[in-house]
């Protein structure tokens, strides 16, 4: 913390300076936060060179350019694999497919979060995972086994979602995951099952009404989860200071401790935060569309096709709309399926 030779350390010093003179309590929080920031920036630095400078320096145009990753071209990102078979009966998965492997195993292994209220969170009362994403996973398990509870959960954070799929440690990821071309390069997505948008959450006494206002405020500390599309999108706002965290809900802790001024995430997530903190407001129009899909391995397109069939059924029988109502009190129709992508090879 004593060195000021590198940009990441200047960031953390800046944070500490703004808080100097406060009680030791916040000083300690700051140190923890500074540690978080330094660690994560170091992590970013390992993976992508000059990107680390983006949140800290008062941003030359160049640093933000490099911070936006090269967008892979995959055509229409929400286009998924057209199913090439009809939905098989439960416990009758076609031989030789990965579906059969799952059936034989007796459990569907689902990677998800445990702290995203409304989508995938651990209900403190029951200790069980609940939410929109969990219900979708139940529907898929039900279609495979005839029993919605034949699921083994692996609780992961945002940054672990892609690795969990590519390493084969989970069958599917149902975890507020945005479909985009960069991710299509590594994993397959189902058709879109929910349309979310990125927003920002501020203190209830804040005068900001849009993300632009937060940006204009200058030096505002904005929290976002590592490995999320949100943190990438935040790179476009050059006057804010990005505070990355491993687990999304750490943002709410830091916000309540006064260690960050705002949180940016999908409106779905922020709605969950707002429900836990009445002194917070979610402001402005969405500044980025986040289209949710179920992630699965590129190696087994039949699994993604199967999930698409299940989602199709849920659109038809109204259960997808019912989930919107149940968890988000929304009555907007779920997004329609888009197909047209061909499995590689």
């Amino acid at each position: 913390m004593t060195s000021t030779s590198t940009p990441p350390l200047r960031t953390t010093n800046a944070i500490e300076r703004t808080r100097s003179g406060h009680r030791t309590r916040s000083g300690r929080t700051m140190r923890r936060l500074a540690g978080l920031v330094a660690a994560s920036i170091a992590a970013v630095a390992c993976s992508s060179g000059s990107q680390l400078a983006a949140p800290s320096t008062t941003s030359t145009a160049q640093s933000t350019k490099t911070s936006a990753p090269v967008v892979a071209d995959c055509g229409n990102p929400v286009a998924s694999y057209q199913p090439t078979f009809v939905l098989p009966a439960p416990n009758a998965m076609p031989a030789g497919t990965y579906l059969k492997t799952i059936q034989d195993r007796g459990k569907l292994i689902v990677g998800t979060a445990s702290d995203v209220l409304l989508f995938s969170y651990r209900n403190p009362l029951s200790g069980q995972l609940e939410g929109f994403d969990i219900d979708v996973a139940h529907a898929i398990a039900k279609a495979i086994f005839g029993d919605p509870n034949k699921i083994e959960y692996r609780v992961i954070n945002y940054a672990q979602r892609l690795p969990a799929i590519t390493s084969g440690s989970v069958d599917i990821v149902a975890d507020t995951m945005t479909i985009n071309c960069n991710r299509w390069a590594q994993i397959a997505f189902s058709t879109e099952y929910y349309h979310a948008g990125q927003k920002v959450l501020v203190r209830s006494d804040s005068t900001a009404t849009t993300m632009d206002d937060v940006n204009k405020g200058g030096g505002q500390r904005v929290c976002a989860a590592k490995g999320s599309t949100n943190i990438v999108n935040l790179g476009a706002y050059k006057n804010v200071m990005t505070v990355p965290v491993d687990d999304l809900t750490d943002c709410l802790v830091l916000f309540q401790q006064g260690a960050v001024d705002a949180i940016t995430a999908d409106d779905t997530v922020l709605k969950g935060f707002k429900a836990q903190d009445k002194y917070a407001n979610v402001i402005g129009p969405e500044f980025s569309s986040e289209l949710y899909g179920i992630g699965a391995s590129l190696k087994y397109p039949e699994l993604t096709q199967f999930v698409n069939l299940v989602l199709e059924q849920m659109r038809t029988d109204g259960s997808l709309l019912a989930l919107n109502t149940k968890w988000l009190e929304q009555t907007t129709a779920p997004p329609a399926a888009v197909y047209g992508r061909l499995p590689a090879g």
Binding site: P124, D250, F273
Partner: peptide, 22 residues
């Protein structure tokens, strides 16, 4: 937070344990 069924409670718990350790 836990008593209000807020999942942020677990995040506080983890931070507490981490503080003890560090």
């Amino acid at each position: 937070n836990n008593r209000q069924l807020f999942p942020v409670g677990v995040a506080y718990l983890k931070q507490a344990s981490a503080l003890l350790l560090t």
